[in-house]
Design a binder for these strands. Structure first.
Lengths: 150, 150
DNA sequence: GAAAGTTTGTTTAATGTTGAACAAATAGTA
DNA sequence: TACTATTTGTTCAACATTAAACAAACTTTC
């Protein structure tokens, strides 16, 4: 017999929404992750390449902020991408601490080949929503996730 | 200079929504995770305890489906909780393969102490939404995440 | 009842992730 | 200039997670 938590109506409603949002996000990302695994890419690696593709060369710190991962992790992910010649590192002449990560030609070709497939899968996942619902979902998620301090 | 992907309006809108949802979910869960770390609990451990608390004793397979984690992982998470005497294992008399996981008294006391704090943090996270927005967000996330086949 | 297939949980190896400690470069301040 | 603090990236140990291989218990089918 289930033991129920006692909570106000507002608390229950919030918890339900939180769980639905987490499950939706995690299950979609999990499915996408399985597809990327066929190309021997992790979600983090893909995130890095995609950020470089859409936003141009960046420091590791910036990339970490984009994909919400730790500095030490970015070091590893970038190193692994570098081993596959998909990205390259170069010194920032204006700041000796920073490293600038850039997509190689090979990386550019790679993302141009696989990004459309990835995008198609995402569109497929969200195809149950009407155009208005899609927009509203985005608005609400942005409103909730706005607290970007860690 | 940023390199932009070419994509239809619908594709761009979908991608934006997907990114906002992922970031919202991950940043909230990340902040919650940091709070739980103070009690030496991982998100997965807390998820297991919470499921047992709200839904009663269950098999590991069921728990895995609840928190969207692999079988091997559940084995480890449950073992770690068992070491801390928060859950216990018992045989299922009707099925020799299955193990039934139950909250111990200690586990019960633990969750009753820390769940309210956890819930408060979640309510806090979602407090930027109106009541109607909260309901609508839940509805949309459920609609998107419904494809629960892995 | 035996054989084949399925489900449940465990083990193992490989890898991702984190937090802390660290070094190097920069910025700020007296 | 020197002194301190901050920022950036790296290294390392600990741990979470996964996929695959496996064993044990069930189910189905003949």
């Amino acid at each position: 017999m289930p033991t129920h938590h006692k909570g106000s109506k507002k608390e229950k409603e919030t918890l339900n929404t939180f769980i639905k949002m987490t499950r939706a996000s995690e299950s979609i990302n999990h499915r996408l992750s399985r597809s990327l695994a066929c190309e021997n890419l992790t979600i983090s690696q893909f995130g890095i390449i995609e950020a470089l593709y859409h936003l141009g060369p960046q420091s590791q710190r910036e990339l970490g902020a984009k994909i919400l991962k730790t500095g030490g992790n970015i070091t590893l992910v970038v190193d692994n991408l570098e081993k596959r010649n998909l990205v390259s590192k170069s010194k920032n002449p204006n700041d000796g601490r920073a490293v600038i990560i850039t997509l190689t030609n090979e990386g550019q070709k790679f993302i141009e080949k696989y990004f459309p497939e990835h995008l198609n899968r995402i569109v497929e996942e969200f195809s149950v929503l009407t155009s208005e619902e899609l927009t509203e979902l985005g608005r609400l998620c942005k409103k909730v996730g706005i607290k970007e301090n860690n």
